[in-house]
Simulated assay, not measured.
Amino acid sequence: MNKSLVLFFFMTLALVPLVHSDDAVIKNSLSRLSIHSADIQSSPVAGLKTVLIESGVLCVSDDGRHLIQGPLYDVGSDYLINVTNQLLGKRSDALQKEMIIFKASQEKHVVTVFTDITCDYYHKLHEQIKDYNALGITIRYLAFPRQGLNSQTERDMASIWYSANRKDSFTQEMNSGNVQPATCDIDIRKYYTVGVQYGIQGTPALLLDNATLILGYQSPKEMASILDQQGSGQATGG
């Protein structure tokens, strides 16, 4: 066997325990802060790990001694890139099959909307869903009850997500304001948790396809303008 390959093999073996050791040290430090459920991810910054917890995102040093709460930005180009949001984008995209999606026939952009059916701006946005679609903007909805979990809004939204035709139930609720209650096992918590990790507190919160997060309603034309700017590299990283 090639000597360089042998050396590489043993160096790799030597590094594996260190990675697990770092994670164990970090988990031990977090446990002292009563944080027992943490998803430890790699980070583009040497000596730091990204840690996803239910209440947000942390950056923790490999030795577990130092902790930073909030998003990590890449400032190496002409505009800010929210590295944390890019990581969370994988989590929101993993929920795609559970989203209520109004797809543009000639799709140019995809916007994920964290929404609450009691929010007036949700109604305003959804009334214009055909206008967003006509501009090539696909809208994907995830439930984010502003009153929190175990609220009436959370139960109503779970009923909508449980229905056989989510899109029709969603639009019917918007038009009538009535939700047909249903006993179901739809877990709104996972949508809500992802929203909290993004730092969302109010609705609608709009997640663009470059991981930029915009808080608050945007008209179809305003949204199209923002998306066109992001396409030309003028994004803020939100």
Rank of each mutant, 00 (worst) to 15 (best):
S151N: 07
L95N: 11
V111A: 07
W161A: 12
S169Q: 11
Q172N: 14
I160F: 00
Q96I: 11
L125Y: 04
A134Q: 04
L67D: 08
Y73M: 05
I81N: 04
T112G: 09
I101E: 09
V110D: 05
D78N: 15
A94I: 11
Y162Q: 14
Q69S: 15
R65Y: 12
D74C: 10
R146I: 13
I139D: 00
I137E: 01
R65M: 13
T153L: 00
I117H: 00
F170E: 09
H126F: 06
A143L: 05
D116C: 11
F144W: 02
D78Y: 11
V113D: 00
R65V: 14
D131E: 14
F144T: 05
E154L: 02
Y73K: 01
D93I: 10
Q152T: 13
I81E: 02
A134P: 04
T171Y: 08
G76N: 14
L149C: 12
L88N: 02
P71T: 02
T115R: 01
M157W: 00
L125P: 00
D156P: 00
R146H: 06
N85G: 14
I81D: 01
R166Q: 15
L149V: 13
K124G: 04
T118N: 13
C119H: 00
L149G: 10
R166N: 13
D168M: 13
G64A: 10
T138I: 03
I117C: 03
D156G: 07
G148Q: 05
T118M: 03
Q152W: 02
K130F: 11
S105C: 06
I117S: 02
Y73G: 03
N165P: 08
D63A: 06
N150G: 11
L125N: 01
I129A: 10
D168F: 10
V83F: 09
C119E: 00
N150V: 10
D131S: 14
Y132F: 13
R155F: 10
H126P: 07
V110Q: 08
I160N: 00
G148L: 04
Q128F: 04
